[in-house]
Amino acid sequence: MNKFDLRLARPYAPQQFAMLNELYRDVQREALRLRVNGEDVEILVPVHKTLLEVLREDMGLTGTKHGCELGECGTCTVLVDGRPQLSCLLLPIQLGRNEITTVEGLGGTAQLTPLQQAFAELGAAQCGYCTPAMLLAATSLLRQEPKPTRQTIREALAGNLCRCTGYVKIVEAVELAAERTRHG
């Protein structure tokens, strides 16, 4: 649980635990309106809760995964105004009006996006755990750079770790999706 825990930032002596419920009630909560996948969502969250936690725990958007919760693996990538950012290091209170996109905001099973289609066809997802993050980072890349070179793809996705694929099929899938988007 690499979580923010501002109210418990200092280790408490045992006698202080009696006060924990009090502390808990004192947690500052904010009513926020977030725009996620094109929908406005109103939520009441403790100010120290990360976007990752809010998405997964409060909004049921469990497509966003986590591998470290410390900004070291890229697995929790979401798009904020179209750019990949790490949801484990974002506080919703700092986001406000930004447009947040998670993997659930790409195509659904009924209508895959070209990237999702290419990932599926080429076997770019094995265990699939890093896949949502890869898709989002690649989506952002192709919007900015419809004809990326291999090197550009590698550099754009270099904040996202994968342990299954050796990245080979992911790079190929991004290339395929780029080509199809250009010619389709």
Binding site: K65, E104, T109, L112, A125, G128, T131, P132
Partner: peptide, 18 residues
């Protein structure tokens, strides 16, 4: 394609922590 490809590319696959 793998039989679970669509679930994995759409984020609907349910892992233990989900």
């Amino acid at each position: 394609p793998r039989v679970d490809a669509a679930a994995k590319v759409t984020g609907v696959a349910v892992y233990a922590d989900d």
